[in-house]
Design a protein around this nucleic acid. Structure first.
Lengths: 167, 167
DNA sequence: TTAAACTTTCAATAACTATTGAAAGTTTAG
DNA sequence: CTAAACTTTCAATAGTTATTGAAAGTTTAA
């Protein structure tokens, strides 16, 4: 397989994966492009490589900055801004986990805690409701703690421990 | 808070969560409804409770069946089909993990393995590409193994081990 | 059989999300 | 200053996905 094909295929596949991770397609493609680039790229470079408009590029670059998975780089003596990706897979995964915990898990936990306060009138309906909510809340809280620990963990330690865990 | 409000709020929140888990809003809402229901519900019941059309209800019920997180129930002596949710949170989580591994992780792994075969021409570009792909592949494979083990694990054992792990 | 009870399909369309590109805004070098 | 270099915004629109509901299909009881 030639480099150009391989690059194309990876960007495509990364787009799909990113999509199912809460990014959008273009966002994930820009990210893929920066992942494999040997040097920081400008908005112009990205527009050209992915064939997208200035507005689109700008918007998605900002979204990636907002997720803290790419960085702004300024080259001394140049006006233009450049961008580069966080290249360390482990750091990247932890950052994504962090953002998703904040964006998805925390909101549902808040709701679960709040609806758990429902008035019990002794009916079967409210009893079942309480039970379901309690179970989900329990699971969500444990997951939340696990993710929090993951965010702070160090790679070698993590995989070693997991390896032992599932021996 | 009254039961009706709480139910409404949970269904809404579950819809959002489900969405970010690769289900769509209606699919997740039907699921939430079945989670808190004390008895199996028919298509008719679901249409009525969520105010959605027959086609929509049917389509999303089938998608949930396809994910294996709800079940078809037949009541002896009745023509109508009823549906009930898998209520055990642990089983549910494992099932979702299983489906997502199949639908998301496996495809990207396949691509990573394939683009890893790219011809190296000694240029910096292809060297960097290889390095990135190797790292991602390594991470994805480890995650894949972890998820596979999770799918087969038993709840108490899992949380105990994790607890020890992050002591 | 047949007709009632139920489920599935699918073309039309509504609703939502992504993208464009020109215009407005901002920064900096001279 | 001010003009060039660059970034951001946003209204228009293209593209995608979800939803409807009527029609077609299927199953079963009598």
């Amino acid at each position: 397989m030639k480099y150009k094909e391989a690059k194309e295929e990876l960007i495509q596949a990364w787009g799909n994966l990113g999509y199912s991770w809460g990014l959008n397609k273009t966002m994930a493609q820009i990210h893929a492009l920066l992942m494999i680039s040997t040097k920081p790229l400008s908005t112009e470079d990205i527009m050209e490589d992915l064939n997208i408009s200035r507005g689109n590029a700008n918007m998605n670059i900002r979204a990636l900055l907002d997720w803290h998975i790419i960085y702004r780089i300024s080259v001394p003596g140049e006006r233009k801004e450049y961008f580069k990706s966080e290249k360390d897979t482990w750091t990247l995964a932890r950052q994504v986990a962090k953002e998703r915990r904040k964006r998805e898990l925390e909101p549902i936990l808040k709701v679960l805690r709040s609806v758990n306060e429902v008035q019990t009138d002794g009916s079967e309906e409210t009893k079942e409701f309480k039970k379901v909510v309690r179970d989900l809340k329990n699971f969500a809280e444990k997951s939340d703690n696990l993710l929090e620990a993951f965010e702070k963990s160090e790679e070698n330690w993590f995989w070693n421990t997991v390896l032992k865990m599932f021996k």
